[in-house]
């Protein structure tokens, strides 16, 4: 059991890492054990989940806004003239 014990300090990086790759079996077990005892780490995990969900929603809004942008008429005209000259 002692091998499974972890402090919050050990656990915080794993909470973040678990979002980026599948943790090794032992780390997963340690995390589970720790969560069973520590409410603060559970809150931290939920906060990261919230943070990342909001970031994703923000990205979607930006992508939507991008769909409505176009190249500036000046740049387009410059390229148009340049193509006419070269063809």
């Amino acid at each position: 059991m002692k091998a499974l014990k972890m402090t919050c300090e050990d656990v915080y990086p794993l909470i973040s890492e678990s979002r980026d790759h599948a943790l090794p079996f032992l780390s997963r077990m340690r995390l589970k054990m720790h969560f069973a005892l520590c409410g603060l780490c559970q809150i931290y995990q939920k906060q990261l989940e919230t943070l990342c969900k909001v970031a994703r929603a923000l990205g979607k809004d930006e992508a939507k806004a991008l769909e409505e942008t176009s190249m500036s008429p000046e740049v387009k005209e410059k390229i148009r003239q340049w193509i006419i000259k070269k063809t």
Partner: peptide, 21 residues
């Protein structure tokens, strides 16, 4: 005592609903 300082605050928001905030 090995806890993060400052301690995580209570956001009191459901992650699913947060995306609409």
């Amino acid at each position: 005592s090995g806890h993060m300082s400052p301690k995580p605050g209570n956001w009191n928001i459901d992650p699913e609903k947060a995306a609409e905030n």
